[in-house]
Amino acid sequence: MTPEDQFEQDTRYELAQMGADAAFKALTLKWMQAANQHKYSYHFHSLGRPIIQYPQDMVAMQQIIWDVRPDLIIETGIAHGGSLIQSAAMLAMLDMCDAISAGETMDPATSKRKVVGIDIDIRSHNEAAIKAHPMASRIDMMQGSAIDPQLVAQVQEIAGGYERVLVCLDSMHSHAHVLEELNAYAHLVSVGSYCIVFDTLIEDLPEAPDNPRPWSVGDNPKTAVEAWLPDNPQFKVDWAVEHSLAASVAPSGYLKRVSA
């Protein structure tokens, strides 16, 4: 066994042990519940733009993009654009590495790799900042509801021109909306890639007494995932990702497509 193989074997064992450690998981959840009171996930940037995300999930995304090597990333929910820009930067890095391996010079103008971002309300100041970013040429934005049939049809048509597709769902977090998003976009995911459903953590956080939003405990992305998975066995929760992160806004949300 090579040292690299030994390292990977040790890592798999350690992750399994960590995932089975109920006391550690309870302590982590307690920390996340406290962190949420301080809006912890709102305090990070990616390449100059705010990204409302845990840094653990940001790392998971770059690992997944590197492993999957997608041609197209579809993201519902744009906000400040940090996630779009992080994804675009990873696609640029894939192009650069492909060019180096082939002994060629990378030409961004000829790259097919794209990020499509969808949001029902792309605020003008965020749109301007995203379009002014060096990664803007790799990003296409679409305004409208992610479950609008016409918009879904447009995205499906775009996806038809790509071989490796990755999907991230992070817009409205109600059970019904996320379930419709899963039905609209998950089938676009290529085998070996992921449909990542963010903010499943809502199910594990205490109910806010003055919650003004249409999602809550019992009505959120995690309940949608739990309802959707039994009828879609070609997707499985990638527990290795979740165990490695420990603290994540997407518990049970890293859905890997394992079959056609």
Rank of each mutant, 00 (worst) to 15 (best):
T2E: 08
P3N: 11
P3Y: 04
E4K: 07
F7M: 12
Q9Y: 06
D10S: 08
R12F: 03
E14W: 10
L15M: 03
Q17Y: 03
Q17T: 07
G19C: 03
D21F: 02
A22I: 13
L29E: 09
L29N: 02
K30C: 00
K30I: 04
K39T: 08
F44R: 03
H45Y: 11
H45P: 04
L47M: 08
L47E: 10
G48N: 07
P50K: 09
I52K: 08
Y54P: 02
Q56V: 02
D57R: 05
V59F: 07
I65R: 03
I65K: 10
V68W: 07
V68E: 05
P70V: 10
L72P: 03
I73Q: 09
I74F: 08
G77L: 01
A79N: 13
H80N: 10
G82A: 02
I85D: 03
S87V: 03
A92Y: 05
M93Q: 13
D95T: 03
D95N: 11
I100P: 05
S101A: 15
G103K: 09
A109R: 15
R113D: 09
G117I: 06
I120T: 06
D121Y: 13
D121A: 12
S124Y: 05
E127W: 03
E127D: 07
I130Y: 01
H133V: 05
M135C: 13
S137T: 13
R138C: 05
M141A: 06
M141D: 00
A146Q: 14
A146R: 00
P149I: 06
V152W: 02
V152K: 00
A153D: 15
V155D: 05
Q156Y: 01
Q156F: 01
Q156M: 06
Q156L: 04
E157D: 13
A159D: 09
G160P: 04
G161K: 11
E163K: 11
R164I: 14
V165S: 06
S171T: 08
S171R: 01
M172E: 12
H173I: 01
S174I: 01
H175Q: 14
H175E: 15
A176D: 15
E181G: 03
Y185R: 03
H187I: 05
V189D: 04
V191L: 08
V191T: 15
G192T: 05
G192H: 07
S193C: 13
C195F: 09
C195G: 00
C195P: 00
T200S: 03
L201S: 02
A208W: 13
D210F: 12
W215S: 08
S216G: 14
V217S: 11
N220G: 08
P221G: 05
K222C: 06
K222N: 14
V225W: 07
V225P: 01
N232H: 15
Q234G: 12
F235L: 09
F235H: 07
K236N: 10
K236R: 15
K236L: 15
D238S: 08
W239P: 00
W239A: 14
V241F: 01
H243I: 01
H243T: 07
A246E: 06
S248Y: 02
V249L: 13
S252M: 09
G253N: 02
L255R: 00
K256V: 12
V258A: 07
S259V: 09
A260R: 13
A260H: 12
